[in-house]
Design a protein around this nucleic acid. Sequence first.
DNA 1: GAGTGGTCTAGACCACGAG
DNA 2: TCGTGGTCTAGACCACTCA
Lengths: 245, 245
Amino acid sequence: MAVRYQHIADDLRRRITSGAWIPGERLPAESALAALHKVSTPTLRNALDVLAGEGLLEKRHGVGNFVRHPFQRITYTNDRRAPDRRPLDDAELQVNVSASPREARGDLMSLLQVVAGTPLTEYVYLSHLGDAPYSLARVYVPRHVAYFSMPDQGRSPWGDDIEDRLAAAGVRTVATVERVTARRPTSEEADTLRLNARTAVLAVERTSTDAKGRVLAAALLVLPGDRAEAVFTTQAFDAEQEGVR
Amino acid sequence: MAVRYQHIADDLRRRITSGAWIPGERLPAESALAALHKVSTPTLRNALDVLAGEGLLEKRHGVGNFVRHPFQRITYTNDRRAPDRRPLDDAELQVNVSASPREARGDLMSLLQVVAGTPLTEYVYLSHLGDAPYSLARVYVPRHVAYFSMPDQGRSPWGDDIEDRLAAAGVRTVATVERVTARRPTSEEADTLRLNARTAVLAVERTSTDAKGRVLAAALLVLPGDRAEAVFTTQAFDAEQEGVR
DNA sequence: GAGTGGTCTAGACCACGAG
DNA sequence: TCGTGGTCTAGACCACTCA
């Protein structure tokens, strides 16, 4: 026996991928589906959570469960020259930014390699694609590196405008390290991204350093796991190519 | 009110981070903790799932819930020269490899950019750190690119030995693309990695291409989200450095 | 066999969204 | 107000581990 919700998830997935339920369509109520599969509602909801985590389903509290349209996919990439770095039409993607002063503490100290109490500026980027929240990013820049009262509005959702402004100010990034983890969202993140607390998020911790290894900026990105991916392109190192020759 | 399990998770987390419960220690039974917090067992288990997803807790069926030792962390990186590319002492990390013939179908076709039925070799890497499963990787190499009856044993858990053998055979990788997503494990993955089906995994889809853009090999990595991270280091492009000068 | 975690039941009650 | 999904209860029963 065991894991009935997995079998139910398989059955429901088949109905979606086979086209029996088409994108945008509302599924029967959870109570009806539970009765149909002869299970209790918690068990059926467990099956729905699986599909929601796969991005096949969109749950709307008080409204219903809907088959997701397969297009909208969030792609974060390390390639600044890539055409999809700014992922979609600016008309559709709305980016809101706010700036506020902070002092380094806890994780930010090790992330930025500064001592406690160091003055920072925190930039919070929250982007929306239509009605749906899209990404959440927090960018931190030490005051002794630079200060911008307010970044450009409506640009990259990942804080690329900060990088551009740093470059314009003569502060050159020579290396970027991106640390990626998979985890459940904090309750705040789930709230702002309107996510189910059970669906995973892709968390990216990005630090930019100059030629001396000094940290210029750090960013914490949170992307919904059910519709996001991060793509990293690496060119072969010269040393490797020549080492074999 | 709402979300009691989050408050319970916060309370339990405090006990761990404050040192009231030390690494390796077994927590009271779930029924006891449920009675202590005056909630039902499913609610308490929900709180424990949160902590397990954060890597603070290790659940052992039939035995108990244990505070995790904070050291063992899995780091996957794109930097082949990094010292932690082979993450730990080979003595501790055991890597098992098996090879078997396959034919391209479904996702593998687009991943390897070959037509249906193309002969491939599948190499399955399963690594253990002590008793605990560590990583699962499946590497695919088209037969028309190369064929190795069996990769080296006890080497990298990510299939780096395949890359090395390709290089030795004169097949040069010039670019690597790694696509990272956060999702729940399939039931097979949860089984082999001995994971809770609710904890997220970090999935890495890696393709290596040569100078002509031909796909040389593709790999599917699955890492437990509660103790894994992927680190990507990007050097600034020459074009960017020179463009500003 | 005793004790543990894993899954499931059959509801109850609350929060949300639309008319 | 009504129907929907979200959370929780107070158990039951099964699977696993170890003495």
